[in-house]
């Protein structure tokens, strides 16, 4: 009788990683597998019960958190990272980074560093991925893709992808060779045909298809970001973004002084303060409902402007903190 190894075949490829979050009935999620290879490193601290556990019957008992790290705090030219994540039914996961993902100088523009992440979300599962921004240094080539597969277009997502102009303290201003970031959400089911639900593809290359320098194309913004929100777990959050966008003051509108300012309740006062802060930070944003998603785009003059804004928006609305705990917004602190 031929010997069959009881162990899975080794997947020891450099940069390969895997996170499997399974549900132990009735509702205890467990990290079935966390594996990684240099230069990727995954750190999973103890899972915490979500603050709203008592109020929400569907919520799992624990929310797991995994830090995505790289040795040296960044990605060296030629590195490749390939992470696959699987969320079983009714599990919740928070993915975090520890500091911005730095992309280090490449000796040759054609030597592209890559990072790929594929996430499979089963019915009722939810993912929060609010990382620090990617910070490509001058003379770098980087390409990343985040592909999310939703079972039958269900599953909840709140994921952010943002990039900065480099080390602004050193005068870097989009001095990269190439930066590409792709976010895709697919619907896949046993019976249904695989269907593209959302694609957000950013392509920054040095010359690009215009003859303009990258920095000239950016209209004085040092950070650009996209926030993708989908699913029942984030229904109130996505509505909040839409409402706040609707409540933004009109561009080019004027105060003629013939309307008296009504007294503001505390919530309205915080909104006015936030809008004041947006102006001060040169932050502009938009939110739109697209095919069942809420897609938020933002840009600001400096990184901290966007970071504060994201944190303010998410903490004010508060449902992520209730459902996933304070850890979910750790990167926005």
């Amino acid at each position: 009788m031929p010997f069959t190894s009881p162990f899975a075949p080794s997947t020891a490829t450099a940069g390969r990683g895997s996170i499997q979050l399974a549900l132990l009935p009735p509702n205890t999620p467990v990290l079935r597998n966390v594996s990684y290879q240099y230069p990727l490193k995954l750190v999973a601290p103890d899972a915490l019960p979500p603050p709203d556990h008592d109020s929400d019957a569907n919520a799992p008992e624990l929310v797991h958190t995994v830090f995505l790290l790289t040795y040296g705090g960044g990605i060296v030219a030629g590195d490749g990272i390939d992470l696959s994540v699987n969320l079983d039914q009714y599990t919740r996961l928070v993915l975090l980074t520890q500091g911005s993902t730095k992309i280090f100088k490449t000796p040759d523009p054609k030597l592209v560093s890559r990072q790929h992440m594929a996430v499979r979300l089963h019915l009722g599962s939810a993912l929060v991925y609010l990382p620090d921004p990617v910070q490509p240094f001058a003379h770098t080539s980087f390409s990343q893709s985040q592909i999310y597969h939703l079972e039958d277009a269900q599953g909840s997502l709140c994921v952010c992808d943002w990039v900065t102009s480099g080390r602004s303290a050193r005068g870097e201003d989009w001095d990269i060779y190439e930066y590409k970031s792709r976010n895709e959400v697919w619907s896949s089911g046993v019976n249904a045909k695989k269907r593209l639900l959302l694609r957000d593809n950013l392509i920054l290359d040095k010359h690009g298809r215009t003859d303009m320098q990258l920095s000239a194309r950016m209209d004085n913004h040092a950070v650009f970001g996209t926030l993708i929100i989908h699913g029942p777990a984030f229904a109130s959050l996505s509505q909040y973004f839409l409402d706040e966008f609707e409540a933004l003051p009109r561009i080019g509108g004027r105060n003629w002084g013939d309307t008296t300012q009504p007294d503001l309740n505390p919530k309205e006062q915080r909104r006015v303060d936030r809008q004041e802060q947006e102006r001060a930070n040169g932050l502009i944003w938009s939110a739109a409902r697209v095919r069942g998603f809420v897609l938020v785009k933002f840009a600001s003059r400096e990184v901290e402007g966007s970071r504060h804004w994201l944190r303010d928006m998410i903490s004010e609305e508060h449902s992520i903190l209730n459902k996933f705990g304070e850890r979910a917004v750790l990167c926005l602190k």
């Binding site: 590409k180 792709r182 593809n201 950013l202 392509i203 920054l204 290359d205 690009g208 298809r209 215009t210 194309r217 950016m218 209209d219 913004h221 650009f224 785009k297 840009a299």
Partner: peptide
């Protein structure tokens, strides 16, 4: 590979 080259 269609994508936005001018994010603003």
């Amino acid at each position: 590979d269609a994508g936005q080259s001018v994010p603003v």
